[in-house]
């Protein structure tokens, strides 16, 4: 076989993989919204519900004082939902497709990616709706150069998500506890990250112990704060003197995202290599 035909073959294979990934994501979306009248609109229901509940709790009952709290919340929440949704879907992605895994030979690496892709589609849609609503209600602070922070923030979020997705998808085949552990950790993660409160409340405490930087070893902390800088963008000073944003500039975020990227890459390596090692026995263990 000549070099070019091997080259062509590899290209065709990559194309098949890409199409298979798209096909599987489309299948999942289709199956999820099959027969529902509102269909895709339901994907907006969950963040909307959270918006109502948390706005009530933190805007009215606990009064954290963040103005236009809904926008602040969604700035961090959407990306968190993308992450946690991907990871929990990925956990079941191999086990849930046992019929396929046991009977058909195909690139198994596709399965966790399908879970991520599925959630990414929702995220993009929700982000789009958020931007439209922000602009429609005159929340114009979003339109600044800070919006470009979306790119590195989402890049790190994707690396971290994909790495973790591979890790838990593979482990869950052998250890079904994984699913439960993931559930608990994601639940905790929601409160650990500055989504419903402002970062200042955490850093104040941590600074006292000199742990402020350790906090950012969690890549999602860097991602959520950067998302807030990009979308909410207003560095409001609250009544107690706290700033809503972690930092009014950009460099701060690049540094935190850099740390997050390194950790995410390590996780990606760990996740994909674990997955690859375990995947040889998937068909047998399911």
């Amino acid at each position: 076989m000549s070099a070019t035909s091997i080259d062509q073959r590899a290209r065709a294979q990559r194309q098949v993989r890409r199409e298979l990934l798209v096909g599987l994501i489309r299948k999942d979306l289709k199956v999820k919204y099959q027969g529902s009248v509102l269909g895709f609109l339901w994907s907006l229901a969950n963040p909307l519900l959270l918006l109502v509940v948390y706005s009530f709790v933190f805007g009215v009952v606990l009064k954290n004082g963040i103005p236009q709290f809904g926008f602040y919340l969604l700035s961090g929440l959407l990306v968190w939902n993308m992450f946690s949704g991907s990871v929990s879907t990925a956990t079941e992605s191999v086990v849930g497709n046992s019929g396929l895994v046991k009977k058909v030979r195909f690139p198994l690496g596709i399965l966790p990616m399908t879970a991520v892709g599925f959630n990414l589609v929702h995220f993009v849609l929700q982000l789009f709706v958020l931007l439209v609503v922000m602009l429609a209600t005159g929340f114009t602070s979003v339109l600044g150069p800070g919006l470009l922070l979306l790119i590195p923030a989402l890049a790190v979020a994707m690396l971290f998500t994909v790495g973790l997705a591979y890790l838990v998808a593979g482990l869950n085949v052998r250890y079904r506890d994984t699913k439960h552990i993931v559930e608990v950790v994601l639940m905790a993660g929601f409160w650990v990250n500055p989504i419903v409160y402002s970062i200042a409340q955490v850093t104040k405490e941590l600074n006292r112990h000199g742990l402020a930087n350790a906090y950012y070893l969690n890549p999602m902390a860097g991602v959520t704060t950067a998302m807030q800088r990009a979308l909410y963008a207003k560095d409001v000073v609250l009544a107690n003197g706290d700033h809503v944003l972690a930092d009014p500039g950009y460099l701060f975020y690049f540094e935190r995202l850099g740390v997050g990227a390194v950790i995410s890459l390590l996780l990606l390596w760990l996740g994909t290599s674990t997955y690859r090692r375990l995947s040889a026995d998937f068909a047998e263990e399911l």
Binding site: Q13, V16, E19, L20, G23, K27, K30, V104, F106
Partner: peptide
């Protein structure tokens, strides 16, 4: 849809 998905699984573009 299944034809397309299945063919894709079997390696067809």
């Amino acid at each position: 849809e299944n034809i397309y998905l299945n063919a894709s699984l079997l390696g067809l573009t």
